Simulated scan of single mutants.
Amino acid sequence: MTISTTKKLAGIIAAAGLIIALAGCGSAPDATSTESGDAGGSVIDGFKPCIVSGTGGWEDRSFNELGKKGFDEALAELDVEGVAVASSTSSDFAPNIQSVLDQNCTMVVTVGFDLAAAAAEAAEANPDVQFVSIDDVVDQDFDGETDFPNIKPIIFDTAQAAFLAGYASASYSTAKKVGTFGGKPFPTVTIFMDGFKQGVEYWNEQKSDSVEVLGWDGENGVFADAFSPGQPATNAAQGLVDQGVDVLLPVGGGIYQSAASVIRDSGREIALLGVDADVFETDPSVGDLLLTSILKVIDVGVKETIVSAGHGEFDATPFVGTLENKGVGLAPFHDFDSKVSPDLQGELDEITAGIIDGSIPVKSYLAG
């Protein structure tokens, strides 16, 4: 476990300025649409999409797996072949991107903030190849604009959905202590922690309560330095459980699996929160522990982007997922539905409306 000050890249505020300006751009991907191909006509000759994962691998039951799901669905709809390459370490990023380029890929999807530098370098060297960046705007020169016109960012203001999860967690907690830890102190990780903390604080304001947030104070926090389950994630989770939390939010790929093991070993009733996917659905082995999950529609966004490009309609305008366009959201309470307050869902609906109309501000690196 490491306790770290978040060192956001020097230009992240400049990049956020671009994102704020574009926050209304890009409609939400239509999760029910299966007719994308009809609008675009036949698939363009030689179209070959490829995807490179972050270090969590394709079976992280989180953002890498969601990216791969959307990728596979796009291949099936277009009836084309593609290449998927998993990264084990950050040193794999540039070679893996180059490997798919060497296989004549015409579109390269990179999954995760930490691939941005390698994606930017490859996009500059290959201007005729389309790039899709999941979770990063790719502004490596920090001028407030995506570096190259052949890169489409798909990014998510998950602080909005995490705000709801924080409020729900504070409502559920009887220990009056909730905790969170991240994989690494990337803005795309700490954005969940930011929203979670603000949601707890909003509960305290509205209910005159005093629920504590452990593991993140807005600048410093607990990080496992990994996006896969293992001893570092176990240590991070154990440290928070030992401090008495009864809700735990791990943010980063498969590290929730280590948190789940710690919860089970504790013998206490501690609720787990999932991120990215509805983990109740993607990993039933931890379903009984899950209060809810903070959602990104990564799979649908990836699928729709690839399908559109396959029909010659690539659009580099960033898609920014929000509560308003349903790019982010909160999963059902599932097995916890009978354990939460009967008033909670109505309160969350009101908060959602307030976030959308701006009367309840949620701060993040994407929204100031």
Score class of each variant (00 low, 15 high):
Val178Trp: 01
Gln160Phe: 01
Pro149Ala: 03
Asn150Gly: 02
Phe163Trp: 08
Val137Met: 14
Val189Ile: 15
Ile151Thr: 05
Ser171Met: 12
Val85Met: 01
Ser133Asn: 11
Gln98Glu: 15
Ser133Leu: 07
Ala119Pro: 04
Gln130His: 11
Asp194Arg: 13
Val111Arg: 02
Asn104Lys: 01
Asp114Ile: 03
Ala168Trp: 08
Cys105Asp: 09
Asp194Leu: 15
Asp114Glu: 14
Ile134Asn: 03
Ala119Phe: 04
Phe181Gln: 13
Asp114Thr: 10
Ala170Met: 10
Pro185Lys: 11
Gly112Arg: 06
Asn126Ala: 04
Asp92Trp: 06
Gln198Met: 12
Asn104Phe: 05
Ala175Ile: 01
Ser169His: 10
Leu75Tyr: 01
Ile151Ser: 07
Tyr172Gln: 08
Asn150Ile: 03
Val132Arg: 06
Gly112Pro: 06
Met193Pro: 11
Val80Met: 08
Val85His: 07
Thr180Val: 13
Tyr202Ala: 14
Ile191Met: 08
Val137Ala: 05
Lys207Asp: 13
Ile134Leu: 15
Ala94Val: 10
Val85Ile: 04
Val108Ala: 07
Gln206Tyr: 06
Val137Asp: 05
Gln140Trp: 02
Leu78Tyr: 00
Met107Asp: 04
Ala175Ser: 15
Val108Lys: 06
Lys69Leu: 13
Pro153Ser: 11
Lys69Ile: 00
Ala76Leu: 14
Ile191Leu: 08
Asp114Val: 00
Gln103Pro: 12
Gln130Leu: 15
Asn104His: 09
Asp92Cys: 11
Asp72Tyr: 04
Asp72His: 07
Glu73Leu: 07
Ile191Pro: 05
Ser87Arg: 12
Glu201Pro: 12
Ala119Ser: 14
Thr190Lys: 13
Gly182Pro: 13
Ala165Thr: 05
Ala122His: 03
Ser169Met: 01
Ala165Asn: 00
Phe156Cys: 00
Ala120Leu: 04
Ala161Ser: 07
Glu77Cys: 12
Ser171Asn: 15
Gly112Tyr: 10
Thr106Trp: 04
Ile134Phe: 14
Val109Phe: 05
Asn126Tyr: 06
Ala165Lys: 13
Gly199Ser: 13
Ala168Gln: 02
Ala175Met: 12
Asp79Glu: 15
Asp135Pro: 01
Gln130Cys: 09
Ser171Asp: 14
Leu164Asp: 07
Thr110Cys: 06
Ala168Asp: 00
Phe181Glu: 10
Val80Cys: 09
Gln198Glu: 14
Val109Pro: 05
Ala122Phe: 05
Trp203Gln: 04
Val178Ile: 15
Asp136Gln: 05
Ala74Asn: 10
Gly166Glu: 04
Met107Cys: 05
Phe142Lys: 14
Phe142Pro: 05
Asp102Gln: 14
Val211Gln: 10
Val189Met: 06
Asn126Ile: 00
Thr190Tyr: 03
Phe131Tyr: 01
Ala161Val: 01
Lys184Tyr: 08
Ile191Asn: 10
Asp209Phe: 02
Phe181Trp: 05
Gly82Lys: 13
Pro153Ile: 09
